[in-house]
């Protein structure tokens, strides 16, 4: 079910401010695509346009096209809510709903759509999703505990479980490990490897090594100059990107000369 995403000539605005300019790329299905670049270059902003979370911010808008299996995401006939159901998202900081138990957190998205769900059905979704997020064994005995009672890494995996419980086709991850310790980070990275057999995964990361470890393809974003909009410098398979990049500025960034 995973889908590829075609982006063409995408400009992203906050009000009158052009934040990201002229992005063209094709994100492959069932692969991990990573975005790297210095902070403030618009990679998270770009990520959020892929499931129309960008327009949640007042005044934010986009120009250009994002096509998912032949349909333009920004067509007026498209319901942003439907888009977000099929393109799930995991955020920088883990954000389980604080008033809900682990169980309720996982089932939250599915509950929205089903008028009534049988208990057994719900149980099945919860177990499947938590197993999918490699969290089942750690929490199966305390599903009724608050989601906030978990450790940071567990919370983030809970958020991933919550995102995959609605069976999206694409999973966007916005620096999912930046708030986590190294052990939790490697747990999430392992999980990303497993998830890519079923989902198209797009991940924004600060950490170039992480991009190199988890991704199949990498996009490098940069600012032309301070105050200028961000843009996509290079988009290539990860191995090529980290060994023999096309652009000199990519090489400069990867080798640590700036950023």
């Amino acid at each position: 079910m995973a889908k590829s995403i075609d982006v063409s000539d995408l400009n992203i605005y906050y009000g009158d401010f052009l934040a990201v300019e002229g992005v063209n790329m094709t994100i492959r299905a069932k692969a991990v695509t990573a975005f790297i670049g210095p902070s403030g270059c618009g990679k998270s902003t770009f990520l959020r346009t892929l499931n129309r979370m960008h327009e949640v911010i007042p005044g934010a808008r986009v120009e250009g096209k994002v096509m998912v299996s032949g349909q333009s995401l920004y067509d007026p006939a498209i319901d942003p809510v439907a888009v977000r159901r099929q393109i799930g998202m995991v955020f920088q900081r883990p954000n389980p709903f604080p008033t809900m138990s682990i169980y309720d957190n996982v089932i939250a998205g599915s509950k929205l759509n089903a008028k009534k769900m049988k208990r057994s059905e719900a149980d099945a979704i919860v177990e499947k999703s938590l197993r999918g997020a490699n969290l089942w064994n750690e929490v199966k005995d305390r599903l009724d505990k608050p989601g906030m009672s978990l450790s940071g890494g567990q919370q983030q995996r809970l958020c991933i479980a919550r995102a995959i419980a609605v069976e999206p086709e694409v999973l966007l991850m916005d620096e999912p490990c930046s708030a986590l310790d190294p052990i939790s980070t490697s747990a999430i990275e392992d999980l990303i490897h497993e998830l890519k057999s079923e989902y198209t995964i797009v991940i924004v990361t600060h950490n170039m090594q992480q991009a190199a470890r988890v991704s199949d393809e990498t996009g490098f974003f940069n600012l032309k100059a301070a105050g200028q909009p961000g843009h996509l410098v290079e988009f290539n398979p990860t191995t090529k990107m980290f060994t023999n990049p096309d652009e000199p500025s990519t090489e400069a960034y990867i080798s640590g000369r700036f950023g």
């Binding site: 349909q71 067509d75 498209i78 319901d79 159901r85 089903a114 008028k115 769900m117 069976e167 999206p168």
Partner: peptide, 11 residues
């Protein structure tokens, strides 16, 4: 609305 068979049709 079916819980799982999310339609491929976004429109």
């Amino acid at each position: 609305p079916d819980t799982f068979a999310i339609s491929a049709n976004l429109a």
